[in-house]
Nucleic acid binder design. Structure first.
Lengths: 163, 163
DNA sequence: GGAGTGATACTCGGATATCTGGTGTCCGAGTTTTCGCGG
DNA sequence: CCGCGAAAACTCGGACACCAGATATCCGAGTATCACTCC
């Protein structure tokens, strides 16, 4: 029940891309440098996000990554699932149907009660993340950082952005 | 974001122990045989549950495991956390404080907005699990299995239970 | 016959291998830029 | 001076090592039982 480190990287990168003007891109090198993380490994994560249709990549010079949609139309859930995989965390192996006292002909309820409880919890988790858009995060991040850092951030973006 | 296979084993074993009369125990061998899983590995999980104070173990002949408390006083959350560890799934490395445009003196909000969003989702997940007691699960499992399997289950328990 | 004692059998607990998936890295495919050359 | 073309530089995409944690297992510590012996 431990999610990968790339999730944090992804969310921060997405928040940074949300600050870009329409159509502009940032290369992976800049994204990695901005957060001081491994560029090679970040590329692996970005690849998944591109495959999931959340990011759009452009090759060659002046290439880079940008958001595929408006930040308000991208939920945190989509980002997390794109990186971590959309399979549920709890895997039910139906061990209730194993053991000495079950016969192949016995009919069980369609859903194991334990499985149902875990699914319900995971639905609550997903609903909470689905309710927050990348635009919300971007706005909150803007409020959470000091004004001077925000100003320097805008300058940094202008220096590294490609169109 | 994938939880271990032992979680399912644990929850089913706990539901089985909830069916035992007061003070009775079941050895790990019986628990493993009932679900047709590896006894050795199940012991590892049970050890963690005993260390967490959810199960009570007894050594020697007529020894085994029993619940430490009334099933109504044990939540699914406690069981899951005892097996998977109580650390949150999302780990915030504070990478917002890394990178080229941050200075050691800058003051940030106490909680990273991204971290806060993930924490909120995880709180929802935990709240959902905390709201379900082992007694609830036991009752639902009893309703979900055919009557003949339930009857054979009672017989099987009487054959393997120790007091 | 009853009590004490030793051996025994059974249980859990901790230490030890193995293996899958996350972590980290590298090189190749593709595209735009740019420089040089010819008209 | 302008257009064309080839080379170069920069980007992402996929394939390849490495390592931590989950998975799986075994052997030792502890205890209740049981049988045997002695009173």
């Amino acid at each position: 029940m431990k999610m990968g480190e790339g999730v944090e990287w992804t969310l921060h990168c997405a928040a940074l891309l949300a600050a870009l003007p329409e159509g502009a891109v940032l290369p992976a090198r800049a994204l990695a440098e901005f957060h001081d993380v491994s560029e090679s490994y970040l590329l692996k994560q970005l690849k998944g996000l591109t495959a999931a249709g959340l990011f759009v990549s452009t090759s060659g010079p002046k290439g880079g990554y940008r958001l595929a949609r408006d930040p308000a139309q991208i939920s945190l859930l989509e980002l997390v699932l794109a990186v971590e995989g959309d399979q549920p965390a709890f895997r039910c192996a139906e061990i209730r149907r194993c053991g000495p006292l079950v016969s192949p002909t016995t009919v069980y309820s369609p859903l194991c009660p334990i499985h149902a409880a875990m699914q319900q919890a995971e639905r609550a988790w997903r609903a909470s993340l689905a309710d927050i858009s990348l635009a919300d995060i971007f706005e909150r991040v803007g409020d959470s950082i000091p004004s001077d850092v925000g100003a320097r951030g805008k300058i940094w973006i202008q220096e590294h952005v490609r169109s």
